[in-house]
Amino acid sequence: MGLLRAVALNTFREAVRDRVFYNLLLFAVLLVGTSLIIGQLAAGQDVKIIKDLGLAASLLFGVGIAVFLGIQLVAREVERRSVHATLAKPVSRPVFLLGKYVGLLLTLGVNITVMAVALFAVLAVYQSVTPAGVQATWTAPALDPRLLIALGLIYVELAVVTGVALLFSTYSSALLSATFTTAIWVAGHFVGDLRTVEQIGASGTTVWVARLVSWVLPNLALFDVKAEVVHGLPVPAGQVVAAVGYGAAYGAAMWLIAVAIFQRRDFK
């Protein structure tokens, strides 16, 4: 437990000392801020635009940071050989990998918190400049606490993406890992479509392959409640719990496969 914490905190420290992390974060916050101006331009429009943009920016930049830092988690250590001194200490490879994973989750937690604060600040400003009469037409209040559910599920999605990045990072170079992880992230949003290919009249093998791929890829649509939250539609608690459980299971599976690969690696 102490070992895990030490590795995780060191990984966190590595991220927060990386200038790129701040640049990405700053850029994301700026984008959320810009949504205020866009909201103003589309005068008379709903507060929905700001929420939409804010959530989308949180996801996009979160994925950016998850991929950028995730692929380096292990690949960089192996390439630069800093892993030699570390793994020569009495720390097992599974604990090392888990510590790295947890450390990055901490970093992403900080990242999503900053994004949430920025989004709520922008919404508060927007609310204060909007006449009460206009506010009455909104389908959901500006400072809707359910935005936190959407942000929470975005965080779980980031955790899954990080798991994928970690897995690739244990045996592939940083560049390849980045490409694969991004591809899987994109594909992960269409998993639902793959599961219904037979409805559009696909043949036997195609259905079979599509099913298989849909089980291997993470079903990221499960984490997407942005539309519901923005439009003030209900989000059932059961759905949220199921999504969190799925995300945790998928992340754990990524870690286990990463361990299986990493255990066999020779460090040159």
Partner: peptide, 30 residues
């Protein structure tokens, strides 16, 4: 590896840490 110390060939360490932080981290790993 509990009672073993190792100096790798041409060692590379986490360059974002200070010497003191590195030794503290490695001590914790031990």
């Amino acid at each position: 590896r509990e009672r073993v110390g190792f100096l790798p060939e041409n060692p590379v360490f986490y360059d974002y840490l200070t010497g003191e932080e590195l030794l503290t981290y490695f001590g914790q790993l031990c």
